[in-house]
Simulated scan of single mutants.
Amino acid sequence: MIDRPRPIVGPDYLVAGRYRLQSKLGGGGMGAVWLAHDRLLDRDVAIKQVLSTAGLDEAEARKVRDHIVHEGRVAAKLSHEHAIAVYDVVLEAGEPWLVIEHLPSRSVARALGLVNALPVIEVAQIGAQVADALAAAHTVGIVHRDIKPGNILVADRGPGVGMAKLSDFGISRNVTEASDEPDGMITGTPAYLPPEVARGAQPTAASDVFSLGATLYTAIEGQPPFGMDDDSDAVVERAAMAQINPPTRSGVLTRVLLHMMEPAPQRRPSMAQAREEILAAAFGPGAADNILGAPVRTEDGTIPAWAARNSAAGLRSPRSGPLPRRAQPPQPVNPAPAPAQQMIGRGGSGQSPSPTVAVTIGLLIGLVIIIVILMMVM
């Protein structure tokens, strides 16, 4: 074992002579996440501190350091408006720190803790936007491998309020790289595992499609597709058997979600195809320009209450507007009644004749009476 002095990390701590820590934002699989200020570029950033490697032997410590540096290099390949940007990877006291975009936000997981389930129309927007980011990631060979509600953020204040972004490429890797994981090791969150990964296969782009489908399912249904269970082994077993509870609230997205969660990876759409299927099902053709790169909105074009803090809820973004609607099939029009039906009150149904018809009949009767009187006089 190698004992290394452990730095006292807290507010005002300066990382790499550049990033001044301000407050802790939370924790992740690799360590704590801090709000920091970049003194060089005068902007706020989020910075992820790796768990200390003190007490590990050099080989294990190097593996942890290499992992976080690798995370930064992989994520830095992706530049997309619906993905959290990676700015820098630095070493401080021998430990790697990942510097990323700071997005004041609420995760979809947090939103579900507030409202239990989200409207289909809003989930469709989140799904299309995240699918767009993942399609770009897959194009450069990156597989995320841990898509879940906690890794989808929606800006809850500021000029970008309502924008959805995918975060945390912490266990992603380039598909061209050899995996250093032992065979049969399961990587990811059990509730969103595709069957092949639950059975020990290596994740692929098709695995990301399943996990995104499972995440969107959860946002709509209020629970994951394999149900709720504190026993993670039981969840993994159901995932391996593809025992998906049929969706009941997904409406127009039902067919798309089931396509994305096909048990066989080869039967799933690509991520780009999934994006197009979501857009077409929820908004009709040609909706991409109104959905991608725009904030998540309610059906009437306002920022959802769950996605905004305080007074921002219900406001219209300058980039927003009413959502496009799917084309509805033409409704049958009741034909106008035939003239004969009008004159006889629709077949003696008890309806009175129209005023025009009544006047005409009255004139005819009056004329007949006059003729009869003249004949009697003569």
Results as ranks from 00 to 15, higher is better:
2 I>N: 13
6 R>C: 05
9 V>S: 07
9 V>D: 09
16 A>G: 06
23 S>H: 12
35 L>G: 09
37 H>E: 14
42 D>R: 09
46 A>R: 04
51 L>P: 02
52 S>T: 15
55 G>M: 11
56 L>I: 03
60 E>Y: 03
62 R>K: 14
64 V>P: 02
65 R>T: 13
66 D>T: 11
72 G>V: 06
73 R>H: 15
78 L>H: 06
79 S>M: 11
85 A>Q: 15
85 A>M: 10
87 Y>M: 05
94 G>F: 07
96 P>F: 04
97 W>R: 05
102 H>C: 09
104 P>T: 12
105 S>W: 07
109 A>E: 15
109 A>Y: 12
110 R>S: 15
112 L>T: 03
115 V>S: 09
119 P>E: 07
135 A>R: 01
136 A>Q: 07
137 A>E: 08
140 V>S: 05
142 I>L: 04
144 H>C: 02
146 D>V: 02
147 I>N: 05
147 I>C: 07
148 K>I: 04
153 L>F: 15
159 P>R: 14
159 P>T: 13
162 G>V: 06
166 L>Y: 01
166 L>T: 01
167 S>Y: 06
171 I>V: 15
171 I>M: 03
175 V>C: 02
176 T>F: 12
176 T>A: 15
177 E>C: 03
181 E>F: 12
182 P>C: 08
185 M>T: 14
190 P>F: 12
193 L>C: 03
194 P>V: 08
205 A>P: 01
208 D>F: 02
209 V>E: 03
209 V>F: 05
209 V>N: 00
210 F>T: 01
211 S>N: 09
213 G>W: 04
215 T>P: 04
218 T>F: 03
218 T>V: 02
218 T>L: 00
220 I>V: 14
228 M>S: 12
231 D>K: 03
233 D>M: 13
236 V>D: 06
236 V>C: 06
241 M>R: 15
242 A>D: 05
245 N>G: 11
249 R>C: 04
254 T>F: 00
255 R>M: 07
256 V>A: 08
256 V>G: 05
257 L>Y: 00
261 M>Y: 03
261 M>R: 06
262 E>W: 00
269 P>Q: 11
270 S>C: 07
272 A>Q: 13
278 I>K: 00
278 I>G: 02
279 L>Y: 08
286 G>Q: 08
290 N>Q: 14
291 I>P: 02
292 L>I: 15
294 A>S: 09
301 G>T: 05
305 A>R: 13
312 A>E: 11
312 A>Q: 07
313 A>D: 01
315 L>S: 05
315 L>H: 03
319 R>D: 13
326 R>T: 05
329 P>V: 09
329 P>C: 09
336 A>S: 11
337 P>R: 08
338 A>T: 10
341 Q>N: 09
342 Q>I: 14
344 I>N: 15
345 G>L: 06
346 R>V: 10
347 G>C: 01
348 G>C: 03
349 S>V: 07
349 S>C: 03
351 Q>G: 08
355 P>F: 10
358 A>I: 11
362 G>H: 06
370 I>P: 00
375 M>S: 11
375 M>W: 07
